[in-house]
Amino acid sequence: MTRLTRSFAILAALGLATGAVSVAPPAAAREYVTVTVTDRPPPPRFERPPPARIGYVWAPGYWNWYGGRYVWVGGHWNPVRPGYVYRPPVWRPYGHGWRIERETWVRDGGWHR
């Protein structure tokens, strides 16, 4: 191996090592905006749940606050997460208004592998 070839090989190896070390994974943070609404949310709309699907849980529809008014968001399927329980969004009284608790997955304390 000539001196010039060896120098290029070392330079390439250093470049690859520097690139591999400097790669940062994207942040997994979520941003939440909390809005308190003075108007009580409308009653939920009736949605007939579709037949069960293996490996999925049905997330019922709910009223969301968007653009200064309530907007209906239809139900949808979510993939099951073993060891977790799905909690749908719910509006709760807060002070002199209403605040939504977003859908979430919580650990199932009685679940074991």
Rank of each mutant, 00 (worst) to 15 (best):
M1A: 15
M1F: 12
T2V: 09
T2R: 12
T2K: 11
R3I: 14
L4N: 10
T5R: 15
T5S: 12
S7W: 11
F8G: 14
F8Y: 13
F8W: 13
A9D: 15
I10M: 13
L11K: 08
A13P: 02
A13D: 02
L14Q: 07
G15R: 04
L16I: 06
A17K: 02
T18G: 14
S22N: 09
S22E: 09
V23E: 07
V23G: 13
P25E: 07
A27C: 13
A29C: 03
A29M: 00
A29W: 02
E31I: 15
Y32F: 12
Y32T: 09
Y32I: 05
V33S: 13
T34A: 10
T36N: 11
T36W: 09
T36F: 07
T36R: 13
V37D: 11
T38R: 11
R40C: 07
P41A: 12
P41T: 13
P41F: 14
P42F: 03
P42D: 04
P43V: 14
P44W: 09
F46I: 07
E47F: 00
E47T: 00
R48S: 11
R48Q: 12
R48W: 09
R48P: 04
R48D: 15
P49S: 08
P49R: 10
P50Q: 05
R53H: 10
I54E: 10
G55Y: 04
G55V: 06
Y56K: 15
V57P: 04
W58L: 08
P60D: 03
W63S: 02
W65K: 00
Y66T: 01
G68W: 05
G68S: 08
R69W: 12
V71F: 01
G74P: 01
W77H: 04
P79G: 06
V80S: 03
V80P: 02
P82C: 04
Y84N: 06
Y86N: 00
Y86K: 01
R87C: 01
R87S: 04
V90T: 14
W91V: 01
H96A: 15
G97T: 08
W98D: 03
E101H: 14
R102L: 10
T104P: 00
W105A: 02
V106I: 14
R107W: 09
G109M: 05
G110P: 09
G110W: 13
H112I: 01
H112Y: 11
R113P: 11
R113Y: 03
